Amino acid sequence: MFESLQSRLVKLKDNRVFEFAVVAVIIISALEIGAKTYELPASAMSLTALLDVFITVFFLLEISIRFLADDDKRHFFKKGWNIFDTLVVVISLIPVQDSEMALLARLVRVFRVLRMVSVVPELRVLINSLLKALPQLGYVLLLMFIIFYIYAAIGSYIFADINPDLWGDIAISMLTLFRIMTFEDWTDIQYETMDVYGWSWLYYMSFIFLTAFAFLNMVIGIVVNVMEQEHARERLLKNPEDKQPTIADLHNEIIALKALLQQQSSSAASAVDDKKTPAAD
């Protein structure tokens, strides 16, 4: 009986209508959260309260269906997205009346919008790619911090007398350099220092080239590369027969092709020798 119920729950979980319903409820939840930030009449507040109860109960049923439909329930909570969804649902059950946990419950209800990421596979791929790219990005960010620190120290030593609000110490200088890197009115800062030091444009040009052009493009390249790997992994999980060839597979194919070409060339050479032999007699 339980197996029959589980099969029905699996069909319900994989049903496109059910998936669209979950997405629709998440969107309604986002709209309800946004509506509460306005001054609403009493009738509208009571309606949002009822809507909040409906959303909470729906999410509780949805996470229960996913848990019961899972074949390996012992490993259900070993997946990060399942843990996140469960925590959001459980904490949403906390009453939002005047209590010490009311603020936490309201904040968690805001995070219900993030459930869109766990529901839509494409969004999960994006988040997983960003998380997996963090170790590689760490070295790029460390090198960028070193460049920031060096330029901030130089700017603080040279330009502090021109504008202490922007170059007073190394911390303020790093904030100013971040503003320059994002191109937020950076020309005003440059022209201010160029009135005193005409060569200071070299300082800004070199910094922008290293950060805005070189390092940021490196960050984008790393993220794109990890995203391609994540998309390939997702395709392989969905269609195992569409496995992409590895370098070892390509190497073996090249060796087999070379052996085939050598065999064909040797066969052609022996055929030519056979034709020449009667002529020589």
Score class of each variant (00 low, 15 high):
A133D: 04
A133G: 11
P135Y: 05
S92I: 02
L142V: 15
I127D: 03
L104H: 02
V120C: 05
F84V: 12
A49S: 14
P135A: 09
L143A: 15
L51F: 08
V120Q: 04
V53L: 13
T56Q: 09
E122P: 03
Q97W: 00
S118A: 12
Y139V: 15
L131G: 08
N128R: 14
I63P: 02
Q97N: 11
D85Y: 00
L50E: 12
L126T: 11
L143K: 13
L134I: 14
D72G: 07
P95L: 02
W81M: 06
L60G: 14
N128F: 07
R109S: 11
Y139L: 14
L141P: 05
S64G: 11
Q136I: 12
A69V: 07
T48V: 14
L51I: 15
L68M: 12
L103Q: 10
T56H: 08
D70H: 08
Y139R: 14
V53S: 12
T56G: 11
E100Y: 03
K79V: 07
L114Y: 02
L51R: 13
F58T: 09
R112P: 02
M144D: 10
R74V: 10
L114G: 10
A49R: 15
L143Y: 09
N82M: 02
L47P: 09
A105I: 04
R106P: 00
S129Y: 01
L137Y: 04
F84R: 04
E100V: 13
P41G: 15
L107I: 14
R66K: 09
K73G: 05
V96N: 01
Q136R: 13
T56Y: 00
I83N: 06
I65F: 04
L68Q: 05
L107M: 04
I127M: 08
D70C: 13
L123C: 09
L130W: 05
K78C: 01
V96K: 08
L104W: 01
L103T: 13
L107D: 01
I91L: 07
V120H: 01
L143W: 07
L143C: 11
V53F: 05
V89P: 01
V89H: 01
D98V: 11
G138H: 05
R106I: 06
L68T: 08
L114R: 05
V113L: 06
S64A: 14
S92C: 05
V88P: 01
M45P: 09
R112H: 04
L123E: 04
L130S: 12
Q136A: 14
T48R: 12
I91W: 00
D70G: 06
L134R: 09
P41Y: 04
A42F: 11
V90C: 02
L142H: 09
V140T: 14
L51Y: 06
L130Q: 10
L104E: 00
R124L: 07
F54Y: 10
I55L: 08
P135N: 09
W81A: 10
R112Y: 00
L103M: 06
F58I: 11
P121Y: 00
H75P: 00
R124K: 14
L114V: 08
R112V: 03
K73H: 01
F84M: 07
I94M: 01
L126V: 15
L134Y: 02
